[in-house]
Computed example of a mutant assay.
Amino acid sequence: MPVELVRAPALSGDVPYAYAAVAPPGSLVFTAGACPLDADGAVVAPGDPRAQAEVVMANLVVALAASGCTLADVAKSTVYVASADRDDLVAVWQVVRSAFGDHDAPSTLLGVAALGYPDQLVEVEAVAVRG
């Protein structure tokens, strides 16, 4: 059974995501935060949140695949951007939304002071449901 995305009629319909998701009985998959790391463990594109977001989403797809899932199985994601600049948050959000396509599962977008690796600006974690 797929993830059921819930839209609350009493809340604004002008948001680009569902307000909640219901997971059927089965296996929940919790990813670690996907980071903008290359195959050697180096942070890519220092200073470029959009480019880092592209790598982060590609890495998230790989982690989900290794767990038997795709982005369409994600019930909830959290997007962290090490910036107080709203333009950076929006740029990252556009990359994340594009990767998810029509699957507009609930997501939280946060500007944070710092992330774990030097020069890291973006991290995305997800909860998915393996069918």
Rank of each mutant, 00 (worst) to 15 (best):
D119P: 00
Q52P: 11
A21S: 15
L71D: 05
L89Y: 07
A72H: 12
D40I: 01
T31H: 07
V15M: 06
S67H: 08
A39S: 08
D119G: 00
A82N: 02
Y117E: 01
A8C: 10
A105L: 10
D48Y: 07
G131I: 12
D40H: 09
A39V: 09
A34F: 02
V15G: 03
P49H: 04
G41H: 05
D73W: 06
A39C: 01
S27N: 05
Q94T: 08
D88S: 12
V79P: 06
P2G: 04
L60H: 02
P16C: 00
A128E: 02
C69V: 08
T78W: 07
D38C: 03
V61G: 13
V90R: 13
T70N: 06
D119K: 04
D73Q: 07
G101Y: 11
A114M: 09
Y17E: 06
D85C: 12
G111P: 04
A58Q: 14
V74W: 06
A32L: 11
L109M: 14
S27M: 09
A45L: 05
P49E: 00
A91T: 13
V29L: 06
Q120P: 06
A65Q: 09
V124D: 03
L11A: 10
V61E: 15
D119I: 00
V95E: 02
A72G: 13
L37Q: 02
Q120D: 02
V96Q: 08
S67I: 00
A91R: 12
V22Q: 12
E54H: 10
Y80G: 10
V29Q: 05
V55H: 04
V6R: 13
C69W: 05
A114T: 13
S77F: 12
V56M: 01
A23D: 02
P46Q: 00
A10H: 15
S27T: 15
G47A: 09
E4M: 07
A66T: 08
A72F: 04
G41L: 04
L37K: 03
L60D: 01
Y17G: 05
D119T: 05
V44M: 00
A10D: 12
L115M: 00
A8F: 12
T70F: 11
P2Y: 05
R97N: 08
D14F: 11
S98Y: 04
V129H: 13
P36A: 10
Q94K: 13
V74P: 05
K76H: 14
L109G: 08
A72L: 06
R130K: 13
A18Y: 07
V90L: 14
T31I: 11
R50Q: 14
A39H: 09
G101M: 07
A66V: 03
G68K: 07
A58C: 05
F30P: 01
V56Y: 02
P25N: 00
P25G: 04
A128C: 10
S83A: 08
A65S: 11
V43N: 02
T78N: 14
V6M: 08
V29D: 00
D48T: 05
L28H: 08
A23G: 09
L89P: 08
A66G: 14
A114I: 10
C35S: 15
V6N: 05
P36K: 00
A23P: 04
V62P: 01
V61D: 15
S98D: 12
Y17P: 00
V6C: 07
